[in-house]
């Protein structure tokens, strides 16, 4: 029983931490229709920046915010490459992702893994110390859930503002944005900035759980995020009471659950990325079949 609770807790922890990244991918992919590969670089960026800052004694919450800011800058660069230099969307992301590799190595001074054990993190300092002793094993879940909910509330609010509506319009119909006398390119840059800030924050929080940063942690982030976005939005398509951000977070939790079940059934760790790609493929195909049906239904007007 204890083992099962442990596994579920682990799924929820990872689901909510990666959930922040998923919301970022949701903004770039679903709202802006921009397949943003930068996230594979900004996720470890968030980790490395956090490791560097926390090791030098910076307050962990501040470290989270600075990590998010660094991610925002990277996203902004992708946007600029795409909008100003007219480089294709996928390529812009790949370029920045590749450059991030060097940036991350510079931040970690050349090492692939940077531990920062026994330092203050958001999980062992500040408000967490006020939690009763009995909740100690739950502290990671509690803190990460709170962080995810804060990000979700901010994003939900933003999506309802004028700027947020215009961002949604940009993914929908750029001509419309032009018609209301706004530059759609600018909105793309804003969207990618927000998306990558979320991703870096997610990396920052994850690094504080393991108290170490891993430069290789970015591989497959985009695939994972996208799969969760697609799983979450297609399963709960008809459920109007859930906001889009909630749907993709639940999508991520389901995704992590699939991985956890596979590992429990004895899948060797080496096959993990293969499994991730497989889940993504299934989600994509299922989603395509669904939307094809929808199109066929919508056709006769």
């Amino acid at each position: 029983m204890g083992i099962i609770i442990g596994i579920i807790r682990n799924i929820l922890e990872e689901g909510s931490i990666y959930g922040i990244m998923t919301m970022g991918v949701y903004i770039s992919y679903s709202v802006l229709k921009f397949p943003d590969l930068t996230v594979d670089g900004t996720f470890p960026l968030g980790m490395c920046v956090t490791a560097a800052l926390i090791s030098s004694g910076v307050n962990p919450v501040v470290a989270c915010l600075i990590a998010a800011l660094c991610g925002a800058v990277a996203g902004c660069v992708t946007g600029l490459l795409h909008v100003k230099l007219h480089i294709a969307d996928l390529l812009s992301g790949i370029l920045v992702m590749t450059a991030m590799w060097s940036v991350n190595l510079v931040i970690t001074r050349g090492s692939a893994v940077v531990p920062f054990y026994n330092m203050d993190t958001i999980f062992n300092s500040g408000p967490v110390t006020l939690l009763p002793k009995g909740l100690y094993t739950w502290r990671v879940l509690i803190v990460s859930t709170v962080a995810t909910i804060i990000v979700k509330i901010i994003l939900d609010y933003y999506m309802k503002t004028k700027s947020g509506l215009l961002l949604r319009a940009t993914g929908d119909n750029q001509q419309f944005v032009t018609s209301v006398s706004k530059n759609p390119g600018m909105m793309k840059i804003i969207g990618l900035t927000i998306g990558n800030a979320c991703t870096a924050l997610s990396g920052s929080i994850l690094s504080q759980v393991s108290e170490s940063a891993n430069i290789n942690s970015g591989t497959g982030i985009m695939v994972m995020g996208l799969a969760s976005v697609i799983i979450g939005s297609s399963i709960f398509k008809k459920v109007n009471i859930l906001s889009a951000t909630t749907k993709v977070i639940i999508g991520m939790i389901l995704y992590r659950a699939c991985l956890a079940v596979a590992m429990q059934l004895g899948l060797p760790t080496n096959y993990l990325k293969m499994l991730m790609a497989a889940i993504f493929t299934v989600a994509l195909v299922a989603n395509n079949t669904l939307s094809k049906e929808k199109k066929a239904y919508e056709k006769p007007e």
């Binding site: 933003y158 309802k160 503002t161 004028k162 509506l165 419309f176 209301v180 006398s181």
Partner: peptide, 15 residues
């Protein structure tokens, strides 16, 4: 609402 706001800033006020 978006069209009605044309010519004014699209900021962080409710859409």
């Amino acid at each position: 609402s978006l069209a009605d706001n044309k010519g004014r800033p699209y900021g962080l006020t409710p859409g």
